[in-house]
């Protein structure tokens, strides 16, 4: 039940790549003469480029197109040359991608926030929205679009916006899972965002029993836990984690307000691999975790 019956690219991410390629060639032709005039700009000639992926349950294909078109119209703040914003629909329906040529990272983010506000109004039910920035030379990397589409497929429809940065290939910890146990919701949200950006799969729990359950189910590579959690006291939680995982395959980082030497000694004795106190530096926390996982 394709929307579009053109033969060539059959899959969504292939279509996205196709559109990017076309744009690239067209630009190449256009800027050919420019390059003669300004040879110094050389490498930086690739324009910035953002993507906005939208998915919801449209009542019919028409709704999908109407909503996406409206978002596109809204986003075209200053009328750009035709095709600066193009919508690529998934042949399988339900989702669409907006290619934001010429959009910097911050502008993409702004566009995403605007799209979110509009979707809250227009989308008939829950939706998923993902904003991403294409890395350098997307025209040479068809796999980027596939990864993006896969990542988007895994995102639940909770009327939310995800900002996705493709993890740096140099980043060793890509794809590793991290469990956060902390009673403070703001702290959890902050760390979750930071670590997901780094490419971790982040699970979080607000209390001890929930943390323990997630630990059993997901066997995370690293656990970051507070000592003051509801339900189970911190030291006992460490003991339980150790019992669950006697070979210490999961690394445990205690991340807490408690700054007494006795607590540090006790936690390290109970199998914690690292101890970090608050107030803290997020960079330090990330570095320490990376070191543990190396």
């Amino acid at each position: 039940m394709g929307i579009d019956t053109r033969p060539e690219p059959t899959r969504w991410h292939e279509r996205m790549y196709q559109a990017v390629l076309e744009r690239y060639w067209k630009q190449g032709e256009g800027s050919g003469s420019e390059e003669l005039r300004e040879p110094a700009s050389g490498e930086a000639a690739t324009e910035p480029f953002g993507l906005l992926l939208v998915r919801f349950n449209p009542t019919d294909d028409e709704t999908m197109r109407r909503v996406v078109t409206r978002i596109r119209d809204e986003l075209e703040l200053e009328p750009e040359p035709a095709g600066a914003l193009s919508a690529i629909y998934d042949p399988a329906g339900r989702q669409a991608a907006l290619l934001l040529f010429g959009f910097t990272r911050s502008r993409t983010h702004y566009a995403a926030l605007m799209a979110k506000r509009m979707l809250l109004e227009l989308a008939p039910g829950p939706f998923a929205l993902l904003a991403a920035e294409a890395g350098a030379q997307p025209e040479r990397d068809p796999l980027f679009f596939e990864r993006l589409a896969d990542r988007f497929a895994a995102q639940p429809e909770q009327s939310g916006l995800t900002v996705w940065n493709e993890p740096d290939p140099a980043d060793e910890s890509t794809g590793q899972s991290l469990l956060l146990v902390d009673g403070d919701e703001d702290m959890r949200r902050f760390l979750r965002q930071r670590f997901s950006r780094k490419g971790y799969r982040v699970l979080d729990a607000g209390d001890g029993p929930e943390g323990l359950r997630l630990f059993r189910e997901m066997k995370p590579d690293v656990v970051v836990t507070d000592l003051n959690v509801a339900g189970i006291d911190g030291y006992h939680l460490l003991t339980l984690l150790q019992e669950e995982d006697p070979e210490a395959r999961s690394k445990i980082v205690v991340f807490t307000d408690i700054r007494t030497e006795d607590a540090v000694r006790r936690c390290l004795g109970l199998g914690a691999d690292d101890y970090l106190t608050r107030p803290f530096s997020p960079v330090e926390l990330e570095e320490r975790i990376e070191k543990l996982l190396a």
Binding site: N228, A230, G231, D257, R259, D262
Partner: peptide
């Protein structure tokens, strides 16, 4: 007792 064991206090 479980509740008392999870207060925010270091020692």
């Amino acid at each position: 007792v479980k509740s008392l064991l999870t207060l925010n206090y270091h020692t």
